[in-house]
Write a protein that binds this DNA or RNA. Structure first.
Length: 488
RNA sequence: CGGGAUGUAGCGCAGCUUGGUUAGCGCGCCUCGUUCGGGACGAGGAGGUCGCCGGUUCGAAUCCGGCCAUCCCGACCA
């Protein structure tokens, strides 16, 4: 990263090198820092607040759909993982294993949970005996550890925070309904809270969760055209019920296995927000996840600044009372510095209040994403003191909608149908390609080798279509086009 | 684990080729003063086991050997 190529902010422009931009921005915006151990991250207050806001709003949706929260242990006896064949196979390479405790070697090693299907399966087998116990609708907020070979902050860290929902049902139909319900919750949340339109679909067998019968995913498009799996919902069938002997007696006195589901969204979602909305100026935060939705910058030094500063605090108090997350930037720094600083941090609305505005009884409002003048600076509009408190929430909602429209436009521009290999290769370099595929793993591998792109999902809203595989020409599988992209 | 690169102040870097005053620059930080409508300025100041271990030498940030760590590109993945 040559210093000369960096913008004034000291961040490599997004347009030049997305990877460098992302890394530098995460640190500069004080979202997170690297931990001392490889692959670990420290989530700093500004980044953690985003997580808290995400948690609050996602958790509310879980409650609204009938779920309750619980906590399950971090340590899992190694033998538990081994009970479900595909599950072990899938997770074995990325397990952290504790072999010693209290200064002695353990009789049985403990794995640090990479996910909790197994412990929860064990507990559910104890808790569930009758159809009257069903359904069990539990969610857990916790941390998990997966020994990643190539960590990237928020996107792939050895330890990450997430929620994992685990439900048990009497039959397949009800479990599938639950799986799809939570799948919809994720997509709705991504759109209405994170302002990211997602491509919804089902994972192909090769991309499926280890131990799942069906896996549904929301895939977001990042600013480099890569896909980011941002939330998954799994129908686990009776795989875990059989492995952990989770049975119930039905109304006819017959012993039945339960059907389980699991679903998760993680701190990776913060990475999605950064990569879906950010620009050369830095972060762009959707208002519903922004720790600070409105920053007020009083203008004027010393005595000249006293009145604007006082008014700024007065307006901030009123705005806070109206439920807006507002901050007055009182720092001893120049206005220009503050403007750039808050732009870097992605604050949606900036309010300027100087002596001139005070006289006019108004403030200037600049939007982080919005119309710009011929110097590339935001066009600032005015808002009178009287209309201020009422006007801001509306602007935040409009701003959210604008981010959605922008992200949707970006997705549409970078997604296309591929009917021949050249088109496929071209599309996949800059975005998503919808193409027919034979469904063979060897062919997927071949595509991956040739383009680094992989099947992201079978879109839920895909039109029925059959034909020849984009790569090998064999008859297509899945009954519709599937989405290929390079992925994080 | 393969390929590539880098370790010098909180951050970004120069110095190393050709060993030799007290290891330097920018940003940031601290103090004082002046400043404040798009990254202000002046003066003063704090901050370093030059990644670690060993070797060569009168003398090593610099040369040699080994080790460690980190980052980037691939294989695993929310």
């Amino acid at each position: 990263m040559s210093a000369a190529k960096k913008s004034e902010l000291g961040v490599t422009p997004l347009s030049e090198d997305v990877s460098a931009w992302y890394n530098e921005l995460v640190f500069k915006a004080e979202l997170a820092d690297r931990g001392p151990a490889k692959g670990t991250m420290v989530i700093r207050p500004y980044g953690y607040r985003i997580w808290e806001l995400l948690q609050e709003q996602l958790d509310q949706r879980f409650k609204d759909t009938g779920h309750v929260n619980a906590y399950f242990p971090l340590f899992i006896p190694q033998s538990y993982l081994q009970r479900e064949a595909e599950h072990v196979e899938g997770f074995a390479p990325e397990l952290a294993v504790v072999t010693h405790g209290g200064g002695k070697e353990l009789e049985e090693p403990l794995v640090v949970r990479p996910t909790s299907e197994t412990v929860i399966g064990e507990m559910y087998s104890r808790w569930i005996t009758s159809y009257r116990d069903l359904p069990v609708l539990i969610n857990a907020w916790n941390n998990v550890v997966r020994w990643e070979l190539r960590p990237r902050i928020f996107l792939r860290t050895t330890e990450f925070l997430w929620q994992e929902g685990h439900t048990a049902h009497a039959d397949q139909a009800e479990a599938m309904e639950e799986t799809l319900r939570m799948f919809d919750v994720y997509a709705e949340f991504a759109l209405n809270v994170a302002a990211i339109p997602m491509v919804k679909g089902e994972k192909t067998p090769t991309e499926r969760f280890a131990g799942a019968v069906r896996t549904f995913t929301i895939e977001g498009m990042m600013r480099d055209g890569k896909a980011l799996q941002s939330g998954t919902s799994h129908y686990l069938g009776t795989n875990f019920a059989r492995a952990f002997d989770i049975t119930y007696q039905d109304a006819d006195n017959e012993l039945q296995h339960v059907h389980t589901t699991s679903w998760g969204m993680s701190t990776r979602m913060i990475g999605a927000v950064i990569l879906a909305h950010g620009d050369d100026q830095g972060l762009v935060l959707p208002p519903r996840l922004a720790p600070i939705q409105v920053v007020i910058v009083p203008i004027g030094r010393g005595e000249q600044g006293d009145a604007p500063r006082a008014k700024a605090h007065e307006l901030a108090a009123e705005l806070a009372a109206a439920g807006v997350r507002v901050h007055v930037d009182d720092r001893d720094a120049s206005p220009g510095f503050k403007f750039n600083d808050w732009e870097l941090k992605g604050v949606p609305l900036r309010v300027e209040l100087g002596p001139r505005d005070l006289d006019a009884g108004q403030v200037l409002v600049a939007q982080r994403v919005g119309p710009i003048d011929d110097r590339g600076r935001p066009v600032k509009d005015t808002l009178s003191f009287e209309r201020f408190v009422a006007g801001v929430p509306q602007r935040l909602d409009d701003y959210h909608d604008r981010l959605v429209v922008r992200a949707q436009a970006y997705l549409d521009e970078h997604r296309g149908r591929a009917d021949d290999w050249d088109t496929f290769e071209r599309l996949v370099r800059t975005g998503f390609a919808d193409a027919l595929h034979c469904g063979e793993e060897a062919c997927e591998d071949d595509i991956k080798t040739a383009t680094t792109a992989s099947p992201r999902c079978i879109p839920t809203d895909g039109e029925p279509e059959e034909g020849a595989c984009i790569r090998c020409g064999a008859p297509s599988a899945y009954g519709t086009r599937i989405v290929f992209a390079r992925a994080y």
